[in-house]
């Protein structure tokens, strides 16, 4: 490094501790050490001059502004969350009400709601003839395609909610089982339900829906009655062809 390079570097970076610079300073006999010392003094003056007084409380004011902004941000964020929560609650409440409304209008709900005005039908014990049973279905323009179940004690056309239906009671093993056939009301699949003390099945038939329900009847009885009414309404199930 020559003196010109040294002085250019010191002129740009007086505080540099580059070993090459310091080595030149210590070895040069052309006055570079003096140049370096004057540069350091000038730099001291420059640093002192540039250290203008800082306004009192600057740091505290900065922190106050930040803390205030942060608090405002938190409040805004909290309000946003509350708005989201409120919206969610409204949506959930709406969905709940919709579900409840849909549930109240379901066939099982309407069937159970229909029963208090027909409780007497459960006490009848005298079996009806097949002709009487068929006559009950004829009132709803429905015909039985199979033999009427044994032990039918009550048949009457009535309204289940808005739906015209045939209301029948079958007594099996001394247990009354209600069958409500709603022609034209097409269900998608079979389902079981339990509500207000009633156990029931909702069965999707080819031309309507059959609701079979009872209070405290055994599963075996329910199955037997459901099978019997399905066979009566749709006709006997076709014989399965087994493999030899």
């Amino acid at each position: 490094m020559n003196c010109l390079d040294f002085r250019r570097r010191i002129g740009a970076e007086p505080r540099s501790t580059d070993p090459d610079l310091l080595a030149h300073r210590d070895s040069c006999r052309e006055g570079c050490a003096g140049f370096w010392q004057r540069a350091q003094r000038f730099e001291d003056d420059l640093e002192a001059a540039m250290a203008v007084p800082v306004p009192d409380g600057l740091a505290d004011r900065i922190l106050l502004a930040q803390a205030t902004g942060e608090r405002r941000h938190q409040v805004r964020r909290r309000r946003s969350w509350m708005a989201i929560a409120a919206s969610l609650l409204i949506v959930l409440a709406g969905a709940g009400m919709f579900w409840r409304q849909a549930d109240l209008n379901s066939l099982p709900a309407l069937a159970v709601a229909h029963m208090p005005e027909e409780m007497d039908s459960l006490t009848m014990t005298r079996p009806m003839t097949d002709a009487q049973v068929e006559a009950g279905f004829a009132g709803r323009s429905a015909t039985l395609k199979g033999p009427a179940p044994n032990g039918v004690t009550y048949v009457r056309d009535c309204m289940v909610g808005p739906y015209p239906a045939v209301h029948a009671v079958t007594r099996m093993d001394d247990e009354p089982v209600v069958a409500l056939y709603v022609p034209g009301k097409m269900g998608e699949r079979d389902a079981s339900f339990r509500r207000d003390g009633w156990d029931g099945r909702e069965l999707a038939l080819r031309e309507g829906t059959l609701v079979v329900m009872a209070q405290g009847a055994s599963r075996h009885t329910m199955d037997a009655v459901a099978r019997a009414w399905r066979a009566a309404i749709e006709g006997p199930a076709p014989q399965a062809v087994g493999r030899i």
Binding site: F35, R38, Q40, R41
Partner: peptide, 9 residues
């Protein structure tokens, strides 16, 4: 001149 040379004399 002193300033030109790099600061105080």
């Amino acid at each position: 001149k002193a300033a030109l040379e790099g600061g105080r004399p």
